[in-house]
Amino acid sequence: MHSPSSEPVLHLVPEKGTSYFRHALRDLAEGLKFAKLGCTLGWLDIKLRYRGSILGPFWLTASTTVMISAMGVLYAYLMNMDVHKYLPFLTFSLILWGFIGGTLQEGCTTFTSAAGLIHSARMPYSMHVLRSTVRNWLTVAHNIPVIVGVFLWFHVEPLWSWTLLPALLLWVFDSFVATFLLAILGARFRDVPPIVASGIQIFFFITPILWTPDLMKEGQDWLLLNPFFPLMEILRTPLLGDTVQVAVWPAALGWSAFLASVTFVLFARMRARLAYWV
């Protein structure tokens, strides 16, 4: 038999100082090691969500097509705009906004919906965020045929600029960070999902989605205070064949840096408590 002095002793040392940030960085690094697992789980979520359905996720493609066809003609008439220019704009805007709304709403329940896995297995929290991010990107990918069809029908020639790749990477980065932030807040406060849902509805009307930025002849610079506007412009404008304004990119990068900073600090401080909240 072993003497009591030979038994291993577990020393619990509270986090303090910069240890919060070291552990947060370690979680992000370990999340990269589980990237393949996160992508696989995100793919399985899509398959299980539409299991037993005939069209599967392409029901989203069909419903998007019908909605854009009806709204495009109606709003082009109401705003006295050329349907050949307005419908491609509306198509791309609604699909991008659908992705934003889905990302924000599912981000609120990222950790709470994975509570069983969090409690039963020791995995980095960033892996669960990656899972949700991959799932949302796979969902929006089913609307690509709608964009291609509208662009071909109305002969839209995208402006293939070198900024398209950085814009797409920024979208991926922001979707991951926004999901991370709302996952933390949603785990701590159960009021976050309805608050986010209400905020999405408000920003839907004050962001150029149903209406074009050109309608604001004066005060277009105020749109840069809307965090969603520069993010949409860096991807939407070149694909619609126009040139991005000079001030849009600094605004998009500034909002992204602010979002990343707040998320990292909050995660570093709250990481040790997340398992008790979900």
Results as ranks from 00 to 15, higher is better:
135 R>G: 07
216 M>T: 13
156 V>K: 05
30 E>G: 01
83 V>Q: 07
159 L>E: 10
48 L>N: 02
212 T>H: 15
277 W>Y: 15
275 A>S: 09
154 F>I: 00
260 A>Q: 06
137 W>A: 13
217 K>T: 10
179 T>Y: 06
135 R>K: 15
37 L>W: 05
94 L>Y: 08
113 S>K: 14
239 L>F: 03
138 L>E: 09
123 M>F: 15
59 W>C: 00
104 L>C: 14
203 F>P: 07
157 E>P: 03
118 I>C: 13
59 W>P: 00
270 M>P: 01
13 V>C: 04
160 W>A: 15
75 Y>G: 01
201 Q>E: 03
201 Q>A: 14
239 L>D: 11
22 R>A: 15
126 S>T: 09
129 V>F: 02
39 C>A: 08
41 L>F: 12
41 L>Q: 06
212 T>P: 01
111 F>I: 06
57 P>M: 14
159 L>I: 00
247 A>P: 02
108 C>A: 08
13 V>D: 02
98 G>D: 02
203 F>C: 11
82 D>W: 01
43 W>N: 03
258 F>H: 12
170 L>I: 00
197 A>H: 14
186 G>K: 09
23 H>N: 13
21 F>L: 06
64 T>L: 15
263 T>R: 12
98 G>M: 15
13 V>Y: 14
32 L>H: 07
99 F>Q: 02
248 V>W: 13
121 A>L: 11
148 V>H: 15
15 E>W: 10
143 N>G: 00
175 S>E: 05
137 W>N: 12
81 M>Y: 07
229 F>W: 12
117 L>Q: 06
17 G>A: 14
110 T>L: 08
118 I>D: 12
61 T>D: 13
18 T>N: 11
260 A>F: 11
63 S>N: 14
84 H>K: 06
170 L>S: 07
240 L>F: 01
168 L>S: 05
33 K>Q: 07
249 W>I: 05
15 E>F: 11
